[in-house]
Amino acid sequence: MAAGGDHGSPDSYRSPLASRYASPEMCFVFSDRYKFRTWRQLWLWLAEAEQTLGLPITDEQIQEMKSNLENIDFKMAAEEEKRLRHDVMAHVHTFGHCCPKAAGIIHLGATSCYVGDNTDLIILRNALDLLLPKLARVISRLADFAKERASLPTLGFTHFQPAQLTTVGKRCCLWIQDLCMDLQNLKRVRDDLRFRGVKGTTGTQASFLQLFEGDDHKVEQLDKMVTEKAGFKRAFIITGQTYTRKVDIEVLSVLASLGASVHKICTDIRLLANLKEMEEPFEKQQIGSSAMPYKRNPMRSERCCSLARHLMTLVMDPLQTASVQWFERTLDDSANRRICLAEAFLTADTILNTLQNISEGLVVYPKVIERRIRQELPFMATENIIMAMVKAGGSRQDCHEKIRVLSQQAASVVKQEGGDNDLIERIQVDAYFSPIHSQLDHLLDPSSFTGRASQQVQRFLEEEVYPLLKPYESVMKVKAELCL
């Protein structure tokens, strides 16, 4: 049975990233139509530049190519590739079939990587351009969430054990800070992308030097003109047959890092959902379990974690691919890159769409948070109580021993009897502590235990987050809708 299948058929496997999760716009960027249309555009740009620099290419040939950029006979191309065992030459023939007058000058002087690699770089750039505003929107939604809850005390956790208090907004800023680093890295790697350009079979530009009869300047002009037509500021000066596969490492490393950030955020949300302090959106008709109707599973956060793990592992592909590119190139890269580049971007696209949807509907339960604080705060307040007693004339050592005994009794009630923490009640009825009984409410005010959390939130948002989001103001209103 021949390899390949009808990918629109229910009898043929289709990647869930495309069929179930990723956005239509990201799927289109990695589609065959987008790819092969870009090949034709690159052939047109090459012909236009070659004509401008004096090669015998007519206006009629150029116009014929322009008129057929979208006229792609995919069936013919597939048949040609089956016959020739070469995808680029299959599309040269297919393009030439609908451009008979231009057929002889299509791909003039070029090698397969002229269309293959340059198209990949265009796709990487455009895919990054799709991700950047999506990530900015996630940051914006979380920034709104953090600002609104900047002063809401909550129990902090280290080692997932109760620690000092923080605020809900401050905790959210930990998430935002990681995503801001990801946004900066995505922008950097996007701006650092260079075009492969017009380089020939081993990167020496020998074929173009021959076409222009040894004119170095025209060869350099050709490279520059096509690079500018493709919208790049610069091209690699040095290439082998391909652009260095280190570029793929750079791009997928940034995406993998984004995956790590999203995994951490969504894990926190899942843990908070278990504590009943916070939940992701839950639709009115949504079913959490087929057997347990009360369940409210954090399905979206779980999906993000599941896909983020996949995204983090994909960076190993370009690392290994770059390491086995012998001399000017081997074909070890080809099949692998067809999979890992598309999957990385479709996965990143999915987790950003999902995280935006989550961040637009996060639900906080202040009463649950308050109750958990009441359970733990008495123990945390013991040092403040000791200091207040010393100020009232008591002995630190005597007070410490009193607190120690009462704390152990209260802990026994919590752990052995399943009761509430009654340390404060014990202190309130103990005559030894009568000098500070009137101060206990103040000493137990949760806001006095959150330090500068709310001020940190305000400063972080104003100095770091809002300036970073400013270039994306025009796209901030787009909502994230999930079908599944």
Rank of each mutant, 00 (worst) to 15 (best):
K224S: 12
A453P: 05
I339D: 03
I386K: 03
V115E: 06
S289Q: 00
L128K: 07
R452K: 07
A335G: 14
V478Y: 14
A348S: 11
R149C: 09
I385N: 04
T347V: 09
E360I: 06
G203S: 02
A150V: 08
N357A: 09
E370L: 12
A388C: 07
R309P: 01
L271A: 06
H442S: 11
I269R: 03
I139W: 01
L155R: 01
T330K: 03
D117L: 01
T166N: 06
C27K: 08
K367W: 06
K134M: 06
L272M: 10
T52Q: 14
E360C: 07
L272W: 09
A480V: 14
P378A: 04
M312R: 04
N71P: 12
E383P: 03
V368N: 04
T242L: 07
N68D: 11
A308E: 02
E328W: 01
G419N: 12
N384I: 14
V262I: 10
R190E: 08
P298S: 09
R338S: 02
Y34M: 08
Y21M: 01
I237Q: 09
Q51S: 11
S447D: 13
P366G: 05
R300H: 13
V457E: 04
T166M: 10
R303K: 06
R20K: 06
G96T: 13
G116V: 15
D422H: 11
I385V: 12
S290F: 02
V324F: 08
Q458A: 13
L132K: 12
L209R: 10
T227Y: 12
S19A: 09
L130D: 06
K402Y: 08
K147M: 13
S207H: 00
C180S: 12
P100W: 08
F212E: 07
D117I: 00
R372W: 05
H217M: 12
L440S: 06
A308N: 05
T330V: 09
E328S: 03
F74V: 15
E283F: 08
D333N: 01
N71C: 11
D129V: 10
Y243D: 00
A256E: 02
A22W: 08
T347Q: 08
T227M: 08
H442I: 13
F74S: 14
P153C: 13
A235C: 15
F208Y: 07
F379V: 03
E279R: 01
S306W: 02
P471M: 15
A335S: 15
D430A: 11
V92S: 08
L69Q: 09
L484E: 14
A335K: 01
L84A: 10
T244P: 15
K66W: 13
C340V: 15
P318A: 09
C483S: 15
G231A: 11
Y294S: 01
T38L: 08
P446R: 04
Y13H: 08
A49Q: 02
L275C: 08
V254Y: 10
M312T: 09
E370S: 11
F327P: 02
M26I: 09
V247Q: 14
R141W: 15
S447C: 15
L174T: 09
L272D: 04
H97V: 15
K470Y: 15
R270N: 03
S334C: 06
Q177N: 15
P162V: 06
E425Y: 14
L255V: 11
T354M: 15
V198P: 08
Q439R: 08
F282W: 10
L469T: 15
R329K: 05
R396Q: 01
K402Q: 08
E81H: 04
I57M: 05
T321D: 01
A127F: 05
L130T: 13
L362E: 07
L142K: 08
F379W: 07
I237A: 07
I62N: 07
L271Q: 07
E417V: 07
A348C: 13
T58V: 12
D117E: 05
C180H: 09
Q325E: 03
V247M: 12
S140V: 15
A235E: 13
T227K: 08
R337S: 01
P153N: 05
R194Y: 07
G394T: 08
C399S: 14
N336G: 14
R196D: 00
K229A: 07
K233P: 11
L319M: 09
L193W: 00
G203K: 02
Y472I: 14
E50K: 05
T38S: 08
G197R: 02
D332Y: 00
S289E: 02
G231L: 07
I385K: 04
R196M: 15
V324P: 00
P467C: 09
K415C: 08
Q177V: 14
L341T: 15
F195S: 06
I176L: 14
L440E: 03
D332P: 03
L311E: 02
R404D: 00
Q161P: 00
W43A: 00
K75C: 10
T354H: 14
F379Q: 03
G116E: 01
L314W: 06
A3D: 15
W175F: 00
D349I: 05
R303W: 00
E64K: 09
S306H: 01
S306R: 02
A163D: 02
P133C: 12
I105H: 13
F379G: 02
A411G: 14
L275I: 12
F160L: 06
W175H: 00
H217L: 10
S438H: 12
L406F: 09
E463S: 10
P100N: 09
I424D: 07
A110K: 03
